[in-house]
Amino acid sequence: MSSDWPAQAIPAAYLTPGTGSFSEFLARAEPQLLPGHGRDLGPLPELRHGTTVVALTCADGVVLAGDRRATMGNVIAQRDIEKVFVTDSHSAIGIAGTAGMAIEMVRLFRLELEHYEKIEGAKLSLDGKANRLASMIRGNLGAALQGLAVLPLFVGYDLSISDPTRTGRIYSYDVTGGRYEEHDYYGVGSGSTFARSALKKRFVRGSDPASAVRFAVEALYDAADEDSATGGPDLTRRIFPVVVTIGRDGAVRWTDEAVGEVSEQVVAGRMTNPGG
């Protein structure tokens, strides 16, 4: 209404001073846009689930990789889903869990980081980003208890640390929003037990990014080997894992060609030695 300060074109809530958090602003001004708003959590149909994502540190950075399969029960729902996303210049997120919820949460989280940066004129610290993500997962607890859990794996390059062996950091979460910093390597999703076992044997601290990517693809291959919900490298359709490396210069998503080359080497290796 015209009597509200200042005017209808920009609603009053937009002109009210507040924090740099986009999700808090949405909750106050546009609650209908928040993920999960107004959902009636009755009996749920079979939904798409994302599966295995692995992260490991390398020399002065961190690597995040995820397979491409989404399942609905026993059916492969999608062969080329993307579960690994670059969230800002120095961080990335991989998701396991209900795909619809997870992708919406990633969209909101990316905007959360960008919004803060634009409003405040400075980037959040890596711990700040990890904590923001924790509170967003905690906000989804009600849905998680109904089976709509989202479990991200968050990685980033900590620009405030000068020791290059500790700059790449990995955070895992549980459905209550618990935030746990992981060291060396970690994995989430249905195939993560196998992927973590593979990484346990292969991981070398301080290896170069290219070798770390090789370890990650090997681990995803092992996960796909044991877990039906995880997809291996698909050489016939040219569908390969999504790989992101983060160093001091920022996050880089590897091209399909580059990951394809690594995947072909991994598959060629397994031709002679199936156990890797």
Binding site: Y14, F22, L33, H115, K118
Partner: peptide, 12 residues
């Protein structure tokens, strides 16, 4: 600030 909020909400 209002402009950034308007743009981000619309883009979202």
């Amino acid at each position: 600030t209002a402009g950034i909020r308007l743009a981000d909400v619309r883009g979202y």
